[in-house]
């Protein structure tokens, strides 16, 4: 596949936490409109990689581009220089992010949570943002909770609000960091359903998850990571059903 066409491209990404190398020269290409699921054992560097894509985590080496734009840095001769915070914040508007712990703003209503960013970044008027927010809430099945506060919702509902919030800026790419890990088992389904509804809608999704069943069913591509490296990647039928690498097999035998 062509480099220019990639929605997300990671090249040579390395990151140390102290002496521990959590990302080890990772290369990843995500095609536009695809659903990419990243799996792997705890501590494999999955979340760090995901967070590096929108520069919540700074890389020590390597680069990330989203839709052809360098994220968090600019080229300065042969080196990369970190952008100003203001410029990075502007870039993030193109990249939605859904957290494991939802991180909704507890003092704002559900509607205000979803409508805040378009207004604050000057991309929409208050009225436009409200209308868009109501649409998105309807899409995740929470239109009637618009005036509720996050504390009054269940975990699954909160995560669906978080998804609507991530979509409010009409990002080209949405990143999900273990979106169902903090949920009670009976609430996982509604959140996965909301994510599945996005797939195929033209938005590029990158999802870190432990839900192998979901990966098999919804992913265009599955990436297996271990010890800071991408060990194996390919269509779910290959990686999940006929893994080539012994570490992948070992991991899958534990979780399946």
């Amino acid at each position: 596949m062509s480099t220019l066409a990639a929605a997300v491209e990671v090249r040579g990404a390395s990151k140390w936490f102290g002496a521990h190398k959590v990302l080890d020269e990772v290369d990843l290409t995500v095609c536009p409109g695809h659903v990419t699921v990243i799996i792997g054992p705890s501590g494999a560097g999955k979340s760090t990689l995901l967070r590096a894509i929108n520069h919540l985590e700074k890389l020590d080496a390597g680069r990330v581009t989203v839709n052809g734009v360098l994220i968090g840095v600019r080229e300065h001769g042969t080196r990369l220089k970190e952008l100003s915070e203001r410029a990075i914040l502007a870039q993030r508007a193109e990249i939605g992010f859904v957290f494991q712990a939802f991180n909704l703003f507890p003092h704002l209503t559900v509607l205000e949570n979803v409508a805040a960013a378009p207004v604050a970044t000057g991309r929409a008027t208050k009225t436009e943002a409200r209308e868009r927010a109501l649409e998105l809430l309807a899409q995740v099945g929470l239109a009637e909770k618009a005036e509720a506060y996050p504390g009054q919702l269940s975990g699954g509902q909160q995560q669906r609000v978080a998804i609507a919030r991530a979509l409010a800026l009409r990002p080209g790419v949405v990143l999900f960091d273990e979106p169902t890990s903090a949920l009670d088992p009976e609430l996982v389904g509604e959140v996965l359903a909301a994510i599945r509804a996005l797939a195929g809608g033209g938005t590029t999704l990158v999802i870190v998850t432990h839900e192998i069943g979901f990966a098999r069913e919804a992913a265009d591509r599955v990436v297996f990571m271990d010890a800071g490296r991408i060990v194996e990647e390919g269509p779910p039928g290959e990686v999940l059903d006929r893994p080539r690498h012994p570490r992948t097999r070992e991991f899958l035998s534990k979780v399946l």
Partner: peptide, 8 residues
């Protein structure tokens, strides 16, 4: 979350 949304 604020940073990820690009809030000023």
């Amino acid at each position: 979350a604020s940073a990820a949304l690009g809030l000023p």
